[in-house]
Design a protein around this nucleic acid. Structure first.
Lengths: 155, 155
DNA sequence: AGACACCTTGGAGCAACTCCAGGGTCAAGC
DNA sequence: GCTTGACCCTGGAGTTGCTCCAAGGTGTCT
């Protein structure tokens, strides 16, 4: 099959396939008389493997390592589990960081309801002071209890 | 102060400061006789604002918008709350995606304990089949109940 | 013969920096 | 006066994983 069909079956673009070839993740396929790349089922399986790894947000470097093991680079698969454990660790870290970030953003969001003159906006003040850290503290201008209206002067 | 001191106070590198200047987020400062950039407290405040936003993982585009509002681009701060709400939405999406990813990775991880010959590694098989989707299903080679040993032949 | 879909290569662009080369500036010490 | 060393300048390349583009070739259909 040609590159377009391969890409479609793998759920990616032809550019991406050529990119993986350039990066050495896919072996260069044979060519037709007209210089078109010609792929077989083996190429598709390898590309599917790569795309599955990418769907799990592995880097191309990590995928390269896995392919190396697959291609016979190790006696057992201890490298695979180690890589996966490290990857899971990275994902956990990112989740933890995003959760903390989310808290900060929520704290900041409480500081204004959006109908305040710019100079009084608690969000902009919070960002000027130190992000979300001081959000729950003082300086709150909006949303006293009920979450309805700001203490706004101008009509 | 010169760029190094400014950068240190803001917790970033001098390259980053020059980058923000090129991107139009920081106004070009005055220069000394020797052509060094010279900054004042206003520059520091603006840079701190930018770095606070970046710590909350806002894009430079979002920050540009916020600075525009701050610089007098709007009568009220509704743009600020809208931007923040959208940003929080993005963060929530990323958290949800990462949590799902984490599940998939954990399912995949269960399929091998790492001392299996490469050809039998359930993780590599799972990645060849379809990532983590089929992980909890059949084809499991390792960690039957106790989580101790694989069904391994070779010593 | 022309239209159209598909393919080729090489190169640029994205985000937000980071690093480097090759050179200039400035204060301190000898 | 000279050197040393820290700091600064500009311009450009590298990072990741694609994605898009231009300019041109191939293959099929009508």
């Amino acid at each position: 099959m040609r590159i377009g069909e391969l890409a479609k079956k793998a759920g990616c673009g032809a550019d991406t396939v050529r990119y993986y070839e350039r990066e050495g993740l896919l072996p260069p396929p044979g060519r037709s008389e007209g210089n078109y790349r010609l792929y077989d089922a083996g190429h598709l399986a390898r590309l599917a493997f790569i795309r599955n790894c990418r769907a799990l947000e592995m880097s191309l470097g990590e995928i390269r390592t896995l392919l190396g093991v697959k291609d016979g680079g190790g006696a057992d698969c201890s490298g695979v589990t180690a890589l996966l454990d490290a990857h899971i660790g990275h994902v956990d870290e990112r989740i933890a960081r995003l959760a903390a970030l989310r808290e900060q953003l929520a704290g900041l969001r409480e500081r204004c309801c959006g109908v305040t003159p710019v100079a009084d906006c608690g969000i902009l003040q919070g960002l000027a002071e130190g992000g979300g850290e001081a959000a729950a503290g003082g300086g709150r201008k909006c949303l006293g209890d009920a979450g309805s209206l700001c203490g706004r002067e101008a009509g």
